[in-house]
């Protein structure tokens, strides 16, 4: 139990009559990278929203970092150590890189309530350190996000999760809107996170990417987890069969 970072038991979410997520049992171990796959509306994002406290679950239990947790909101989840890279990037376009990295948790020189003086040098140094740690390359830290490409923005968003001592990083389709080279850059960061032993949940539609990057693949279909497979035990066709429903995983899941 000690090396389990995140565990859910019978996690269920109903939106009125819609059963968006049903009895999801999920486990993530230390240093493990897991991909969540599935068709649109299969329950992937719903699952993530329950873990990160963005929504309140209908039923089920969540353990994080050895304790049972009930996050009232995303900020509580973040304070507990769950960092999420959202599909719609949560960056302020008119701020530079350090300001975005430290948005809402600025380092201060003098504490004067809302008028606390910012420690800009310390934030800049910490930003540089985080970018080195994640191997993110941003040409100019003091340039605003507005002037950056989609890939650079995504890199900043990811570097933000790595700046703080996060215990779990969740990425919701981090490369969906990116070009080939930018995708490669983001994938490099994910590899760096793996080398650093930081656990990750990756939501992705990209089969090649998933097989390149993660240890284990979990497939959602119609609100249920239908497959939970180690990468070496499966292949692309197999996963597609689970996603489309050509293969139902109940028998194997029960056997495992």
């Amino acid at each position: 139990m000690s090396d389990i970072v995140l565990k859910t038991e019978n996690l269920t979410k109903h939106y009125g009559g819609v059963h968006a997520l049903q009895e999801a049992n999920f486990e993530l171990r230390k240093g493990e990278h897991v991909a969540i796959m599935g068709d649109n509306g299969a329950g992937k994002s719903t699952f993530v929203r329950q873990i990160t406290g963005v929504e309140q679950r209908t039923d089920g239990k969540i353990w994080f970092d050895g304790k049972e947790v009930n996050f009232a909101g995303p900020i509580e989840a973040r304070e507990a150590g769950i960092e999420t890279v959202f599909q719609n990037l949560a960056l302020a376009d008119d701020l530079d890189v350090p300001s975005n990295l430290f948005l809402g948790r600025e380092k201060v020189l003098f504490n004067l309530g809302p008028f606390s003086i910012l420690d800009r040098k310390a934030m800049r140094r910490a930003t540089e350190a985080a970018l080195i740690r994640t191997a993110v390359k941003i040409p100019n830290l003091s340039s605003t996000i507005r002037h950056m490409s989609g890939g650079q923005r995504q890199c900043v968003a990811i570097a933000r999760t790595a700046t703080f001592a996060s215990k779990l990083i969740i990425m919701d389709e981090p490369t969906a809107a990116l070009g080939v080279q930018e995708t490669a850059q983001v994938e490099n960061i994910i590899r760096t996170l793996k080398e650093n032993g930081e656990p990750l949940i990756l939501i992705s539609h990209n089969m090649r990417q998933v097989f390149d990057l993660v240890d284990r693949i979990v497939v959602f279909r119609r609100g249920r987890i239908v497959a939970n497979l180690r990468k070496q035990d499966t292949d692309g066709n197999d996963i597609v069969a689970y996603i489309t429903g050509a293969k139902t995983g109940q028998a194997e899941l029960q056997a495992a």
Binding site: D93, L95, V108, L112
Partner: peptide, 12 residues
């Protein structure tokens, strides 16, 4: 200050 930074953040 933090106040100023948050002004820009909320506006953008």
């Amino acid at each position: 200050t933090r106040y100023g930074k948050h002004c820009y953040a909320i506006g953008s």
